[in-house]
Design a protein around this nucleic acid. Structure first.
Length: 426
DNA sequence: TCTGGGGTCCTAGGACCC
DNA sequence: TCTGGGGTCCTAGGACCC
């Protein structure tokens, strides 16, 4: 049996831990650049604030009801996430916890007897809240897909379920599936949902009746087969141990559209430095660097209400894999220079590192002289930047003025990761 | 005026090989 | 005019996730 533990309105909950007067009040958290709404408290949902909608559209509603608004504070959320995950690991054992996202983890419950499942799930829930201040919902079932389904149920009926739903019998699974629309199943996105709807397959139970071979042909091949199996309670998606990332990206919208090559280069250099830090944190090196820019040109698109300009991208295969900021910034900035077109306005840029290998197994290139600033210097920079403020030490090409930096008009303090922003009791 | 930012896995099809 | 039958590796793009 598996549990999925999911933090309720995670980003909002993090803000509330340090501003308890906002409990029971409507709260929302915005994406970078204060663009979209990415987390809503139950009270905000009740008022009718939509998910992932643009902030400016929801603003009248938000003002009318006095909804508390926060810019995203990823330093805080990242640290709170670590605390929640550490708590789960201490209760269930490190090897039984798979961190699935910033606010979700699967827990393998093989060590819990059938008649104690609910008890243990409730304990997880209570202790996480006690130790971190974050409320979670727990779904328990024979497979990950069904556990996600149980979790949806526990969330939808918080009061009745106590935040915990356990699907341990065929009867309960059947009922739950019959009450669930296919689009709400884990692994069914918009495209498949529409296809299924056209085929008159409406509920999870309907879908479970379909043969695996049908799913192989009509529902994304092996992906569809796995889904059907999981709905039958046959485990097809196993616990995953932690794996290094195969791709590392740092991309941002600009606060304002920029047209200067110097600004673009500055942004790309900064993103590269950030991506290189992520790379070093997992002791990897990258063999390919990809840079892209997005203009604000109008473009014919299938989604006219959500207009991005065209994306221009290009990549370089590095002479040898590296994780050193200076070795990555040079080609990245060069790519930015190639992509840049005078007279266009740019609203976004990004850097993607791929062909990632462990950095202790870097294959030397016979023809390149691998003289390096050395990992030592990188480590020192990372340590200083981490323990002090961000970016006390940075590369000159990252610039210093950053006109292109994003908007963050409502940011809370980084209570748990910066001494000078520590939560003040009095 | 203003619309995140990450990731994963899978498949199809092309290039190339014998 | 006729034109096999495998393989592998790589990439782009689709679909999905939070």
């Amino acid at each position: 049996m598996y549990a999925i533990v999911d933090c309720n309105s995670f980003y909002c909950s993090c803000e509330r831990v340090f501003q308890p007067h906002l409990d029971e009040k409507p709260v929302v958290v915005l994406s970078n650049n204060d663009g979209c709404i990415i987390s809503r408290s139950d009270e905000a949902k009740a008022i009718g604030v939509g998910m992932a909608g643009p902030y400016f559209l929801a603003k009248p509603l938000i003002d009318k009801h006095g909804v508390e608004v926060f810019s995203s504070n990823y330093n805080l959320y990242g640290d709170m996430s670590r605390r929640v995950m550490d708590t789960l690991k201490s209760l269930a054992g490190e090897n039984n916890v798979e961190v699935y996202s910033v606010d979700e983890a699967f827990v393998n419950l093989h060590f819990i007897p059938q008649n104690k499942l609910r008890e243990f799930a409730l304990e997880l829930r209570q202790i996480v809240e006690l130790w971190t201040g974050v409320k979670v919902s727990v779904g328990v079932a024979p497979t990950k897909t069904l556990a996600k389904l149980a979790n949806n149920i526990s969330k939808k009926h918080k009061i009745k379920t106590g935040g915990v739903a356990v699907l341990e019998t065929e009867e309960k699974i059947r009922k739950a599936l019959a009450l669930t629309q296919v689009k709400d199943l884990w692994g069914v996105g918009g495209r498949s949902a529409k296809k299924l709807f056209d085929l008159k397959i409406y509920t999870g139970w309907d879908l479970r009746q379909m043969p695996e071979e049908w799913a192989r042909k009509n529902l994304g091949g092996v992906v569809g087969v796995r889904l059907i199996k999981e709905l039958h309670g046959k485990e097809a998606i196993m616990m995953d141990e932690y794996k290094d990332k195969k791709m590392i990206a740092t991309t941002r919208m600009f606060g304002n559209a920029v047209s200067d090559l110097a600004d673009i280069k500055e942004a790309v250099a900064t993103y590269t430095a950030r991506a290189a830090e992520k790379l070093r944190r997992q002791n990897s090196a990258a063999g390919v660097i990809n840079v892209f820019v997005v203009t604000n040109e109008k473009e014919e698109t299938t989604a006219p209400h959500f207009r991005h300009g065209p994306t221009y991208s290009s990549h370089i295969i590095l002479p040898y894999p590296t994780s050193q900021t200076n070795e990555l910034i040079k080609p990245a900035v060069a790519l930015a220079g190639q992509l840049y077109q005078q007279g266009k306005k740019y609203k976004k840029a990004g850097v993607i590192l791929s062909s990632i290998v462990p950095d202790d197994s870097i294959q030397g290139n016979l023809f390149e002289n691998q003289k390096s600033v050395g990992r030592f210097l990188m480590e020192q920079i990372d340590n200083i930047n981490f323990s002090m403020r961000n970016d006390v030490v940075k590369f000159a090409s990252s610039g210093t003025k950053r006109d292109w930096k994003m908007r963050k008009d409502f940011q809370s303090d980084r209570y748990t990761t910066r001494w000078e922003e520590l939560y003040k009791v009095k």
